[in-house]
Write a protein that binds this DNA or RNA. Structure first.
Lengths: 136, 136
DNA sequence: ATATCTGCAAATTTTTTGCAAAAAG
DNA sequence: CTTTTTGCAAAAAATTTGCAGATAT
């Protein structure tokens, strides 16, 4: 199946709001909250309702277009579903950077064996102080 | 300094509500949400206000008595600050179990080096299906 | 045309803030 | 008796639900 359109492929309709939100994710360097999306300039002319943002995020998650993460902020953030990775967050300025290290397969096998759980996914997030904030 | 009283040691006052909440944590096998605390039987006779629960949790966190975690539920959970560990959550029944595996020191050093961040803490949570739910 | 999507209104859930009365040390 | 803690009232922030009108295909 040739991928011509991410919306058609996911079996959902292509609308101006969805195209704008997808484009926001495609150009964002960090995971975004529902608020980040709503206040993004690319949505300025469409000014979708808050509810529509939440519903779009849920639809995109269900379609496997984006992924939902938590960074100890008491809210969710979302980012494009892409190669597996994690994050490191600066506790001083809030900067979020991707991490490509992960727990090894061997450890996951041990966890499965010891707990009896099958593992579907995991989260791994680091919190610290970035170089800029340390020198500032 | 001999530890006679966790409250005195933390420089906070010992009150019936705080003693009850501490005792709830001490006997709980899983991390608890603010709601879990509020509806716990041990608080039935004291029936503290919701605000007091939240303020107590914050005070306990600041005092290093408990730790705040997120398990992709859109709310916080809290557990006694004890030996470093992580969790595995059953996506079917919600069961939360402790994990004592962790990312290795070598990986953390690499992350520090590659990102320039100093690392203060990290979260590592697994999500899957427990044995009971698989056989049921 | 018909199924899907969006907006509006309203509500729910989680958490926070301000102030005065109550309790701890 | 002074400082800290609690309750009450209120609000903020994040997210969800129902329904009717608008839009995509």
């Amino acid at each position: 199946m040739k991928q011509q359109n991410i919306f058609h492929d996911a079996g959902i309709r292509e609308t101006p709001i969805r195209k704008a939100i997808l484009s926001i994710f495609e150009t964002s360097k960090t995971p975004l909250s529902a608020q980040d999306i709503e206040s993004h300039t690319k949505l300025a002319t469409l000014h979708p309702d808050t509810v529509t943002i939440y519903r779009t995020l849920e639809t995109f998650c269900d379609a496997g277009i984006i992924r939902r993460i938590e960074l100890q902020e008491g809210k969710f953030r979302y980012e494009l579903e892409q190669e597996h990775h994690h994050h490191i967050v600066c506790l001083s300025c809030g900067k979020i950077q991707d991490i490509h290290d992960c727990i090894d397969e061997q450890t996951q096998r041990r966890i499965k064996k010891e707990t009896g759980f099958t593992i579907q996914r995991h989260s791994l997030e680091f919190f610290g102080i970035c170089a800029d904030c340390r020198t500032a």
